[in-house]
């Protein structure tokens, strides 16, 4: 076991090539190759939480499908806990939890409780572990009132919480989350993040998650990987990503009345004015406090909020940086 801990998840030049057939006129079809994953290598030590981000179609889901054993890689070497996922799919399945944001792994027509009972038998979870884990999930994810409800009647946020619980009942060593907060309301998002943090610290569960929400990464991940066109473009801390991408946060201020663009705030520039509302951009790594103070001192402030940069923007800037 110990030998695995430094490289609990290990990818070495992993590739996935799809052959796509396209209709080219009546009855004729053209074949062409798509390299969804084009030589990805990385290692994740046990207990790390990694954010795996990139634009749609970048190869994120394909990577997760290979890590879980759903897809067989076209090339390279891949190990999770020393197991080759595509060869020993069911053995690995006992040690991993998977949550697909877009589709449930629960049984659509069964109440949550029945789904969990089935998971218990399927994964052969010992009674005391099952009771303990279920209790904890019910408490932390606020599921008590949902246990008797058929899955199809749950809202997206409720279902997601139900799914995350189902993925953790068998104490997996590694947890894969594909867009776990997509479409969730603010309260559900907060609950999900808190819960994941706790699972990670208490049980040293390794977590790999894909997301479009930078807040997920900020609050959960020690490490972030940017993938595009099937390759790793960045691998490091979130702060480092902001530095590379020169990403900016935005301070949105509502003034008492319409005024000319705000001037004279060090480290920030006004990028937009719309009536009494103005937008000021400043480097993501900088603190918002002095900027807010400077604005408040010189202008009649009614309300304000800070907007985090979009992942898409950060990545776009990163590209601009490289090519320029």
């Amino acid at each position: 076991m110990a030998a695995n801990d430094a490289a609990f998840i290990e990818l070495d030049a992993v590739e996935k090539v799809f052959t796509v057939r396209r209709r080219a006129g009546w009855m004729r079809r053209e074949r062409h190759e798509v390299r969804a994953v084009d030589g990805i290598s990385f290692q994740v030590p046990r207990g790390e939480v990694v954010g795996y981000i990139g634009p749609n179609g970048a190869g994120k889901s394909t990577t997760i499908k290979m890590l879980t054993g759903i897809l067989v890689p076209s090339g390279g070497r891949l190990r999770v806990a020393g197991i080759d996922p595509s060869k020993e799919r069911t053995r690995l399945a006992r040690r991993m939890g998977v949550v697909f944001g877009q589709r449930t792994t629960l049984w659509w027509d069964l109440p949550l409780r029945d789904s969990y009972a089935l998971v218990r038998r399927m994964y052969r979870i010992p009674d005391d572990r099952y009771r303990h884990n279920l209790e904890r999930c019910v408490e932390l994810l606020d599921l008590a009132e949902l246990l008797e409800v058929p899955v199809r009647q749950l809202s997206l946020g409720q279902r997601m919480r139900g799914d995350i619980a189902a993925a953790l009942l068998h104490d997996p060593d590694v947890l894969y989350l594909d867009e776990p907060t997509i479409g969730l309301d603010v309260i559900s998002k907060v609950k999900v993040r808190e819960f994941l943090r706790e699972v990670n610290t208490e049980q040293n569960t390794t977590v790999l998650l894909t997301t479009h929400d930078l807040t997920d990464i900020e609050q959960l991940c020690q490490r972030v990987m940017v993938i595009d066109h099937g390759r790793v473009m960045y691998d490091g801390s979130l702060a480092g990503l902001h530095a590379v991408g020169e990403s900016e946060r935005t301070l949105v201020v509502d003034l008492e009345r319409e005024l000319p663009p705000i001037e004279g705030v060090p480290g920030a520039r006004t990028v937009r004015v719309d009536g009494a509302r103005q937008w000021l951009a400043f480097p993501a790594a900088a603190s918002a406090a002095p900027i807010v103070a400077a604005v408040a001192a010189a202008y009649p402030l009614v309300d304000l909020s800070v907007r985090e940069p979009d992942i898409e923007d950060v990545i776009a800037k990163m590209y601009a940086e490289r090519s320029g």
Binding site: G69, R89, A93, M96, Q102, T104, Y123
Partner: peptide, 14 residues
């Protein structure tokens, strides 16, 4: 078609 085959493949049974 709807991708739910994937959810069967991540469970530890045939």
């Amino acid at each position: 078609r709807d991708g739910t085959m994937d959810t069967l493949l991540v469970r530890p049974v045939p």
